[in-house]
């Protein structure tokens, strides 16, 4: 109980206070300590990554045991092993590793990112159905902004360009800042509760 609950709380509290003090005060030893803590954060994250890797291997090995024809799990395990072997044996700057990154990892990531364009279309189609007053306002505002953002729109309806500027710089920014300020206050509250050990449930405590 002491090792699982109390020690993490003490570590979180001490680290939190040191980093906060280092941010506000010019005290060299505290700044050094905070810098070490931030480095340790990266080290711990690497250990956690190992834990994540084990989870991936365990899950997909089980999937394969259950269904040997599970192509996705097999593909994941094979690419996982190849990438690790190439990275460890030939180095991260080797041509083989660069090939994996530039010609497999980056294009597949870009392919998933490109899905966003289609999803924006389907989401907009649903959102722009004027089912009630709020949806109608969203539809009208959306149409004004879309027209105001392209040269031909401003040519067809000249008022859309200044209206778009007003919607984006007054209504949109006002709403976003409200969310950001309230979110920042919430961040402070959660951080304080973690530093003083009152947020143990969030990391598995009671």
């Amino acid at each position: 109980m002491f090792l699982r609950k109390t020690v993490p709380t003490i570590i979180a509290g001490v680290c939190g206070v040191v980093v906060v003090v280092a941010y506000f005060f010019e005290i060299a030893p505290i700044k050094d300590l905070a810098s070490h803590i931030l480095k340790w954060q990266s080290v711990i994250a690497v250990f956690a990554l190992g834990l994540g890797g084990v989870n991936i291997i365990r899950l997909h090995t089980k999937n394969l045991q259950r269904d040997p024809k599970n192509f996705y799990s097999l593909a994941l395990l094979v690419t996982f092993v190849i990438t690790i072997v190439v990275g460890l044996a030939m180095g991260q700057t080797s041509a083989a590793y660069t090939f994996i990154f530039d010609y497999i990892n980056v294009p597949t990531g870009s392919a998933i990112f490109s899905l966003l364009a289609f999803y924006i279309g389907t989401a907009a189609y649903r959102a722009f159905r004027a089912k009630n007053a709020e949806a109608a306002i969203l539809l009208i505002t959306g149409c004004i902004v879309m027209l105001g953002r392209v040269p031909i729109g401003a040519k067809i309806l000249p008022f859309t360009a200044p209206a778009t500027d007003w919607i984006m710089s007054v209504l949109n920014v006002g709403g976003q800042r409200g969310v950001m300020i309230a979110g920042a206050i919430g961040f402070i509250a959660v951080s304080l509760r973690i530093i003083v050990g009152l947020e143990r449930r969030a990391y598995g405590g009671e």
Binding site: I44, A45, A48, L49, G50, L51, G52, N55, R201, A202, Y203, G204, G205, E206
Partner: peptide, 17 residues
């Protein structure tokens, strides 16, 4: 589903608890 390794360890503990 979790995307960050450090979050994964904490998430598993939260679920267990």
């Amino acid at each position: 589903t979790v995307s960050q390794a450090e979050t994964f360890a904490v998430t598993e503990q939260v679920m267990r608890q």
